[in-house]
Amino acid sequence: MIGCLCIHGFTGNPTEVEPLVTHIRRNTDWHIVVPTLPGHGEHLALKGISYNQWIEHAERELQNLLKICDKVYVIGFSMGGLIASYLAVHYPIEKLILLSAAAYYVNPKQLLVDVSEMVKDTLKGRLKENELFIRYSRKLKETPIAATLQFRKLVATIKPLINRVTIPTLIAQGESDGVVPPRSAHYLYENIATPEKKLIFLKESKHLICHCNERDKLFCEIVDFLQDAKNS
C-alpha cells in the first residue's frame, strides 16, 4: 500500500491542501493522512506552542504511515514544505512534493500589488469581498507574535538541512505569491541534493496554490511525478 502525508502551513489547516487531496483520492487508491498541527485548525490556539511540537506531530503521523505502508510520499505546503523536507532527511520517504515552501517568506513586490487591490476594493466598499482580506485578516488577529517567532525558528532550523534531501522532489511555486517569493523555489531547487528534481512555476497563482485557477494542471503534474517509475 502507498501512503501519502500532506502537511498544511503556518496558521493554516487541512483545507489549504484539500483540493489536491480530493484529486489524489479520485485518481489513486493511496492511504492519505492530513493532520492538523498543534495550535492550528479552524480556530487558532497558538499561544504556548513551540515549533518542535509541529515537527514532532508530523513525525508521529509519518511513523504511523511507515508502519502500514510499503511506500510513503510526503507533500508539504508553505511551512509544511519545510517540515516535509525535515522528514525527508530523517525518514525513508520515497518522494517529496514542496508547494509554496517557505524557505524565504514575504514577497514585497507582490504584497504591494495585493494591498493595492485591497485599497481599491475598500474605496468601492467591497473590502469584505476581497479573498485575500477574508483569508488573512483573521489570521493576523489570532496569531501571537511569539507564534510567528516560532515559525521563524523552524525555518532557521530546517533550512540548513535542505542540502541533505536526496529523494526525488517536485517543487511548485506561484509567481504571484505575496507570502513566499519565487526565489524560495529557486533556492530549494538549487540546494536540494537529488538530481531527480523538477521545478514548476504557475504564472497566475498566489500563495494558496492548491486553490488557484491553475490547480488542475498542478495536480496532474504532482500525480504524474509520484507515479512515474523513473523517479523511484
Rank of each mutant, 00 (worst) to 15 (best):
26 R>V: 04
28 T>Q: 08
31 H>G: 14
54 W>H: 10
40 H>D: 04
49 I>D: 04
27 N>P: 13
102 A>I: 07
67 K>S: 06
27 N>Q: 14
28 T>Y: 11
106 V>T: 04
37 L>F: 03
108 P>S: 02
49 I>F: 07
69 C>M: 06
100 S>D: 03
65 L>N: 05
102 A>D: 05
99 L>P: 01
44 L>Y: 01
25 R>K: 13
66 L>V: 06
118 M>R: 14
113 V>N: 02
57 H>E: 12
59 E>G: 00
23 H>W: 09
118 M>V: 11
63 Q>T: 11
41 G>H: 09
103 A>M: 10
109 K>E: 13
82 L>F: 04
33 V>N: 13
98 L>T: 05
73 Y>H: 15
83 I>R: 01
97 I>G: 11
64 N>A: 10
60 R>E: 15
102 A>C: 11
80 G>K: 08
61 E>V: 05
53 Q>C: 08
114 D>F: 04
48 G>V: 13
84 A>W: 08
66 L>E: 04
82 L>I: 02
42 E>V: 02
58 A>L: 07
68 I>M: 04
59 E>V: 14
88 A>Q: 00
117 E>I: 12
112 L>N: 05
76 G>S: 03
81 G>V: 01
101 A>E: 05
37 L>D: 11
85 S>L: 02
52 N>R: 14
28 T>G: 11
117 E>D: 15
30 W>M: 15
44 L>N: 01
67 K>D: 08
33 V>M: 06
27 N>M: 11
44 L>M: 03
104 Y>L: 06
117 E>W: 14
29 D>C: 13
99 L>I: 00
113 V>Y: 09
91 Y>A: 08
33 V>S: 10
118 M>D: 07
32 I>C: 08
119 V>C: 09
25 R>S: 05
35 P>W: 03
62 L>P: 07
